[in-house]
C-alpha cells in the first residue's frame, strides 16, 4: 500500500508537481509536433525525421555540455570555434594515417584542454566567462586556421563517414546513438553524482558553496572541460557529416546550444536546470528549424523568429518563476 503511494507520488524521482514545473515544456513540444503533423505531410516522412535527428545530434551534444556551464553560473561562447578545431585536428590525424580512435581521442582531448583553459581563466583569474570565452573563441579559431593553414581538406578515411551518416539496421542514424549515450552520461553526471550536486550549489549560491567546503574553482573548471569534451563529440559528428576538415565551420552553434538550455528551463541566474529539460529544448529547436524549412519560411525570417522564440521562452520561464516565488 505504502509502496504504491510512493510510486504514485514519485515520478522520475520527483513529485508530480515538480515534474510539471520542470518539464511542462514537453507539452509545447507535443503541440508543435501535432501542428506540424497536420499542416505538413512531409513532416512525418522517414527522410524528414532522419534529418531532424541528424541536426539534433550535433546541437544536442553541445547543449549537453552548455547546460553544465550555465548551471554553474557561466557561459561558453567558444564552442563554435571548438567545432572547427575538432574538424581540423581530425583532418590532420587522417592525413598522418592515424586510425579512427586516435583521431577521435586527439580531437576530444584538444577541445577538453581548451575547455580546461577556459575554466582556469574563469575560476582562477576570476574573469568574466563572457569575456574569457569571447576572447578564446578567437584564439581557438585562430589555432584551427594555423593548424590547417586555412585550407579545407577532404577526409580520406571512408569508414569515418559512418559516424555522421551511417545507420544502425539501415534505419536509425548512428549519431543519434552517440547523442543518447552522451545524454545518459550527462544525466548521471548532473543528477546522480557529487559533481553534479556541486555544480548546482556553485550556480545556486557560490558563497554558500564555498562555506560548505566545496572546491568551487575546480567545479567551475570542470564544467568548462566537460563542455570542451562535448564540443569535441559534436565536432566529430559534424566533421563526419560534411566529410571534410574545415577551419571555418561552426559559427553560430553556441546560440542554438544556449537557446536549447534556456528553452529547457535552465536559469541564467544559475543553479536550475535538468538534462531531460535540455533534451526537450534541443528537440524543440530541431523541430522549429525543420518546421520553418518545411513551411518554406524565408531563412532571413527564420533567424529573426529564432531570436523572438528565445525571448518568449525566457519570458515564460520568468513568469513561471515569479508564480512560484
Amino acid at each position: 500500500m505504502n509502496q504504491t503511494k510512493m510510486k504514485d507520488r514519485q515520478f522520475l524521482g520527483m513529485t508530480r508537481e515538480t515534474f510539471f514545473k520542470k518539464y511542462g515544456i514537453i507539452f509545447i513540444l507535443l503541440l508543435m509536433v501535432g501542428i506540424m503533423l497536420v499542416v505538413s505531410p512531409t513532416f512525418r516522412t522517414y527522410n524528414n525525421v532522419l534529418s531532424i535527428m541528424q541536426s539534433v545530434a550535433v546541437n544536442g551534444c553541445l547543449a549537453l555540455g552548455m547546460v553544465f556551464v550555465i548551471t554553474a553560473g557561466g557561459i561558453d561562447l567558444s564552442i563554435g570555434s571548438q567545432l572547427a578545431l575538432t574538424s581540423v585536428v581530425i583532418g590532420c590525424a587522417f592525413a598522418a594515417n592515424a586510425p579512427i580512435p586516435v583521431a577521435i581521442i586527439a580531437s576530444i582531448a584538444m577541445c577538453t584542454a581548451f575547455g580546461f583553459i577556459n575554466g582556469l581563466l574563469v575560476s582562477r583569474l576570476k574573469l568574466f566567462p563572457f569575456v574569457v570565452t569571447l576572447a578564446t573563441q578567437l584564439v581557438i579559431r585562430g589555432a584551427a586556421y594555423i593548424i590547417s593553414d586555412g585550407k579545407a581538406s577532404s577526409i580520406t578515411n571512408k569508414s569515418f563517414r559512418t559516424i555522421g551518416m551511417g545507420k544502425v539496421g539501415d534505419v536509425i542514424p548512428v549519431c543519434i546513438f552517440i547523442f543518447l549515450g552522451l545524454a545518459v552520461i550527462a544525466f548521471i553526471l548532473l543528477h546522480c553524482t557529487k559533481f553534479g550536486r556541486f555544480v548546482y550549489a556553485v550556480g545556486g549560491n557560490i558563497n554558500a558553496a564555498i562555506a560548505s567546503g566545496i572546491k568551487v574553482k575546480w567545479v567551475q573548471t570542470f564544467t568548462y572541460a566537460w563542455m570542451g569534451a562535448c564540443a569535441g563529440v559534436a565536432g566529430i559528428i559534424l566533421t563526419s557529416r560534411i566529410n571534410a576538415a574545415q577551419p571555418n565551420i561552426g559559427s553560430g552553434y553556441e546560440t542554438d546550444a544556449i537557446a536549447a538550455c534556456v528553452i529547457g528551463g535552465t536559469s541564467f541566474a544559475g543553479g536550475i536546470s535538468t538534462i531531460p529539460g535540455t533534451i526537450i529544448g534541443i528537440i524543440i529547436i530541431g523541430v522549429i528549424y525543420n518546421g520553418m524549412n518545411l513551411l518554406q519560411v524565408n531563412s532571413y525570417y527564420q533567424m529573426a523568429l529564432k531570436g523572438i522564440l528565445i525571448i518568449l521562452s525566457v519570458v515564460l520561464d520568468n513568469y513561471l518563476n515569479k508564480r512560484r516565488g
Binding site: I188, T193, A201, N205, I272
Partner: peptide, 27 residues
Amino acid sequence: FGLCLNRSVKENISLPNLRARQKGLFI
C-alpha cells in the same frame, strides 16, 4: 553564505557531507 535558495531542502542539508552518502561514483 548558508543556503542555495533555489535548491531543495534535501540538497541543502546533504551538501557539506555528500561524501558520506556516496557509493562509488553515485549518490
